[in-house]
Amino acid sequence: MRDEEGEAVVIREYDPKTDRDGTDAVDRDCEVGPGGGMSLHADLLGDPVARIRRSPRYLMLVAETSGPGGRIVGLIRGTVKSVATGESRPGAPAFANVGYILGLRVAPSHRRMGIALLLVRQLERWFELMGAEYAYMATDRSNEASLRLFTARCGYSKFRTPSLLVHPVHSHRLRAPRRATVVRLAARDAERLYRSRFAHVEFFPADIGAVLDNALSRGTFLAVVDKGGYEWRGVDHFLSSPPASWAVASAWDCGGVFRLEVRGASRLRRGAAAATRALDRVAKWLRVPSVPDFFRPFEGWFVYGLGGDGRDAAVAAEALFASIVNMARGAAAAVAVEVAALDPLRSRIPHWRRLSCAEDLWCMKRLGGGGGPADGWDWARSAPGRSIFVDPREV
């Protein structure tokens, strides 16, 4: 294809030796934000493939104009892995190879030329070469251009609508339910617990051990609601005799991959936020809902693998999230978690509405010409479950 100036546009694999400046420029041109003249900038710490490098298989493509003075005008990133589909089968959970699309960008000067469509189709071909049966992507429900591209032109269906819940990290500690006991699990115990109790949850990664062992994983924590307190006696005892109400979750340090920054804020907004932080530092007992310094590069943590069981599981989940927020003091400005629309644990997760997204949107399609499996079951058209496992490597 050719752009408005008659130059051909070609799709090729990203070259780290020559393409970094060009991809950085496209990312800067495509900043998004909360409005009011502000924009959200993501800095991948000098590595454009940092967000996908920790996945088993990954690829980054760029769209480049040909000829003298050619420049990069688009990019897309993707990963392939094996995950649980949530389908009920006797014996073992059903797994499928899926491709995940993220980081689709096209420079404003080259939009409405079909470049995004070319990038998506090229990445889907790579997914199929890697054995992927499905492809999926996540976007904001208000991103009409992205939705038109994927649902109207690429054949994706609206699949799941999880909520992204975000809480800022303050100088004071976040209060947690006193009747919950929180303990830290060893990585191997955490893997056994996850595989035993959550291997059937949608998008549970087959390589969960690699996720838990990653240097960016800050630990796995178990919260138990028990009037007499709780003592961890090992994973075997827990699996054979679980407490009445409990929840488990792990923490991931996104700061090891990228930093965020809100740009374009007025001096008045910056000054008001700084005043709340100053008051919080000198009078922590007031528990001021201070606003972190989002106007300089900041880091965030992500809570993944959240799940539990029992009448008071939501209370246990609240204790877990509050504990992780407190643990992030001095290391991150905010902590986020993504939960399924029907997840009963979401009701107790502390968060700020202004920072959160009530309905994120995931879209999916089956690859290989769109035909369904031999038994007629198609994950892309299945009903949502109560839980979803969000891989932190794709945040």
Rank of each mutant, 00 (worst) to 15 (best):
A180V: 13
V9H: 03
A244T: 11
W362E: 15
W232D: 03
C254K: 09
A272V: 07
H237R: 14
E31H: 04
A145N: 06
A316W: 09
A317P: 11
V26I: 03
G256W: 11
L164N: 13
K227D: 15
R381M: 08
M327K: 13
G255R: 01
V224N: 07
T151V: 14
P93N: 02
R112N: 14
A332Y: 01
S347I: 14
L268I: 08
C357D: 08
M1K: 01
S245W: 04
H172F: 12
R263T: 12
L123E: 15
L345V: 10
P93R: 03
A341F: 10
P350F: 07
R346P: 07
W232F: 11
L44K: 13
G307M: 09
E318Y: 02
S146N: 10
A96T: 11
H172V: 02
R112I: 07
L367D: 08
V26D: 06
L239N: 02
V224A: 06
F127P: 04
R20C: 06
L59I: 12
A314V: 03
R311P: 10
V73C: 06
H110K: 05
A331V: 04
G372M: 03
V201K: 04
R2W: 00
R366S: 10
L59A: 10
V282P: 00
G372W: 00
V288M: 02
L123M: 15
P350C: 05
R173A: 14
G46L: 10
D29V: 00
S347Q: 12
I324Q: 14
A138C: 14
F159K: 00
A283V: 09
F204V: 05
P68C: 02
C357W: 00
S240K: 14
I349P: 05
G114R: 12
P177V: 02
G370F: 01
E191P: 04
R197H: 07
R197L: 15
A116N: 04
L222A: 01
P292L: 13
F198C: 11
G99W: 08
A50P: 06
A94D: 10
D360S: 14
A247R: 03
G67C: 04
V80E: 04
D375P: 07
W285N: 04
C357V: 15
F150W: 07
N326P: 09
E87P: 03
V288D: 02
G256D: 13
V201T: 15
H167N: 07
R366F: 05
L355A: 14
R77C: 08
D3F: 04
V395M: 11
I115Q: 11
A176H: 09
P48F: 06
Y58C: 10
C154L: 15
K365N: 05
L75Q: 15
R269Q: 14
G209C: 12
R270Y: 00
P48M: 06
F238Q: 09
R28P: 00
A176T: 14
A190I: 04
D24M: 09
G372Y: 01
E394Y: 03
L239Q: 02
E128I: 11
T65S: 13
P16W: 07
S142M: 03
F150G: 03
E338N: 01
S266L: 12
R348W: 04
M364N: 01
G6I: 04
P162V: 05
V80L: 06
R188F: 00
L44Q: 08
T181M: 01
V98F: 02
L129S: 12
D47Y: 00
A132L: 09
D27E: 11
L279V: 13
